[in-house]
Every structure is written in structure tokens, then in C-alpha cells.
């Protein structure tokens, strides 16, 4: 049994996902306690240049044509062999579209314990500990990472990605090509995101609405304020899922990351899937009727008020200032 921490590097179409660096940073936290190495695990085909800034002692590169695009089947088969041969202490994945597909399946197939939604990991008196976030960020759960081996999925927010980057390119060890059989999933094609009327990632004023907007007709109130401020309306997931706004306006894990001068969050509770995409904003202002909404811990200014009382008057006052 090794004490190494394996980080399964997430990448898509030639780009390493930021969560990979967060995981490497977490790996270094854990390696302090285990005395093992932080090992980057890269799965793909004909990859080059992806590993140059990974803060890892080395990279295990599993190269196979069946790994050219992500499928959970191919990842499961390749990782099962790797894990069985090397017995690392921890195997870490992003709590993402890719990582969630792989980690639970491996846990079931290999009978390995899994701890998901980890925000932080640390060593406490020789034991490896996790802190996971649950209930939309309202609750944290702490415990020990099961020994002798466990799988982990990480969410962003707890550790800085810069800590997982290095200027010293790690050694890349090409692993023997594994036989990958019984793949039942194949990638047919990528569908590019719709090109919308606006690119919310480039806007400097975002009036963003969440579940609190209640219905489609109310969006006009937010639109009026956005227009008055010279910005646009964006939203969290429920608004898009209801079909009230196109997906081009979605801010969050499956939508866009934004960095406006001001992000006005109206009726957005602040679930982690949303907040991870707004941390680049210069200023976040939150309006919510729930005084304990997690969004308030991220915002610079906040007010507990019903947005339907506030919006008409606020829009009016913004117009007056603009006119004067």
C-alpha cells in the first residue's frame, strides 16, 4: 500500500480545467501527512503540453486511443488497472461533469470508499481529514478519509488553484498502453454553445436573477434595472431550467464564469455551483429575503428585502441619477 496521492487531471479539448490545480493543492496538503508523493494522473491520447505547469512529483500518462475523448467506461477501465497495481492512499477527482461520472462508478465497481463534495482536506495528528459542503453550502460535514484507500471528489472554493501550479515541468512517465475493452459509450460530437445576443462574460454590469424571481413576467423588473444601469440580465440555473431565459445567460458551473464591475444578485441563494463562477466579480451585491442565504458571505453589500418592493423604486432612482 502506497502513501501517494493521485490526482486525476481533468482536461477537455486541450485545456486543463482549473479544478485540477485545486486538487493538486489539496494533494500537497495531504502528502504532508502521508509522506507520499503527489502524482498527477493524465488520461488521453496524443496529448502534449498539458502537464507542463502541474505541481506534481511526476505525471503518470495513460495513453490509449479509447481515451481520446472522455467516457466513464474508458476511464473506469484504465483507472481500475492503475489503482490495483499501485494502491495509492487517495485518488482525487473534480466534483464536475467528468469527475462525478467516474468516481461513484469506481467506488461501486472496486468497493472503494468515496467522499464527495470536499472543499478542504487537511492532516490532523496523522489522520487525513475532509470537510465537505452539503445542502447548497449551508452545512459542512467533517470526518476522516477512510483508510487504507479512498476516492475523493473536490469542489472549488477552499483552496487556491495557484498552489497547484509550478514553473518546473514534472517528469512524465508514459504508462504501458492498457487494453480497454467493453466500452459502451462513445462520443459522437461536441455541440458548441449557442452564440447569444450578449456575452455575459464580457459585461461590466450584471443584474442576475435566481429562483426568487418567481415567474417569467417578473424578469421585466430586473431587465428595467439592467437597462437603466447599462448592463444585462443573467441568472442562476433554475431560471434557465424553467425556460425563462436562454442558456447563454447562465452564470455557474455549467454556464459561464463572469467578472463584472458589479454583480447584483437578486433572489439568488448562493449555491456553490453558482458562486464558483462569480468570484471574479469586482463587487457582489446581494438582495434576498432569506437573511441566512449563503450569498451574503460572498457579497460586499447585502440587503434583506423583497426585490419586488425594491426594484421599481431603485430603477427609477438610477434613471434620475443618469438624467441629472
Amino acid at each position: 500500500m502506497s502513501q501517494d496521492i493521485y490526482i486525476v487531471i481533468e482536461h477537455l479539448r486541450g485545456q486543463v480545467a482549473e479544478i485540477s490545480y485545486v486538487m493538486l493543492a489539496a494533494g500537497h496538503e495531504l502528502a504532508k501527512g502521508t509522506g507520499g508523493k503527489v502524482v498527477a494522473v493524465l488520461l488521453g491520447h496524443n496529448l502534449s503540453g498539458l502537464s507542463s505547469n502541474l505541481a506534481a512529483s511526476h505525471v503518470l500518462y495513460l495513453d490509449h486511443p479509447a481515451l481520446v475523448d472522455f467516457t466513464s467506461d474508458a476511464y473506469h477501465n484504465a483507472l481500475t488497472i492503475l489503482i490495483n497495481e499501485n494502491n495509492p492512499r487517495i485518488v482525487m477527482f473534480g466534483h464536475t461533469s467528468i469527475g462525478m461520472d467516474v468516481a461513484s462508478g469506481l467506488s461501486a465497481r472496486m468497493g472503494l470508499p468515496l467522499v464527495s463534495q470536499c472543499r478542504e482536506v487537511h492532516v490532523d495528528g496523522g489522520t487525513l481529514k475532509f470537510v465537505s459542503q452539503a445542502c447548497g453550502g449551508k452545512i459542512m460535514a467533517e470526518g476522516e478519509l477512510p483508510a487504507p484507500m479512498s476516492l475523493v471528489t473536490m469542489v472549488p472554493g477552499g483552496l487556491k488553484p495557484e498552489l497547484g501550479q509550478s514553473e518546473q515541468p514534472p517528469e512524465v512517465i508514459r504508462m504501458p498502453v492498457v487494453e480497454l475493452e467493453g466500452i459502451r459509450i462513445t462520443l459522437k460530437d461536441y455541440i458548441e454553445p449557442e452564440i447569444g445576443d450578449v456575452d455575459i462574460a464580457k459585461e461590466s454590469v450584471l443584474v442576475s436573477i435566481g429562483r426568487g424571481i418567481q415567474n417569467k413576467d417578473n424578469i421585466e423588473l430586473a431587465q428595467d434595472l439592467a437597462t437603466a444601469l447599462g448592463g444585462v440580465v443573467s441568472s442562476s440555473r433554475p431560471v434557465v431550467d424553467q425556460g425563462w431565459l436562454p442558456s447563454t445567460r447562465l452564470v455557474g458551473k455549467s454556464g459561464k464564469s463572469v467578472k463584472p464591475k458589479i454583480y447584483l444578485a437578486l433572489g439568488i441563494s448562493g449555491a456553490p455551483e453558482h458562486t464558483e463562477a462569480i468570484t471574479g466579480s469586482n463587487m457582489i451585491v446581494a438582495i434576498n429575503t432569506d437573511p441566512v442565504a449563503p450569498i451574503f458571505s460572498l457579497a460586499k453589500y447585502g440587503a434583506v428585502v423583497d426585490m419586488f418592493d425594491l426594484l421599481p423604486m431603485l430603477t427609477e432612482q438610477v434613471r434620475k441619477v443618469k438624467e441629472s
Partner: peptide, 27 residues
Amino acid sequence: GGPTIGRMFKPEVSEYAIMIEGDINEI
């Protein structure tokens, strides 16, 4: 296959928004 939870808690808020108080006009 699942972890044992040793402690559950509400996140300690290290930073919190400056709350704007008052009636609608003041806000």
C-alpha cells in the same frame, strides 16, 4: 463505502456582507 461524519456544522462565516438596513427608500 461512505464516510463516517465526525462533525456537522454551519460554515463559519469569516467574511460577511455589509448589510444595508432601513426602509425601502433608505435601501
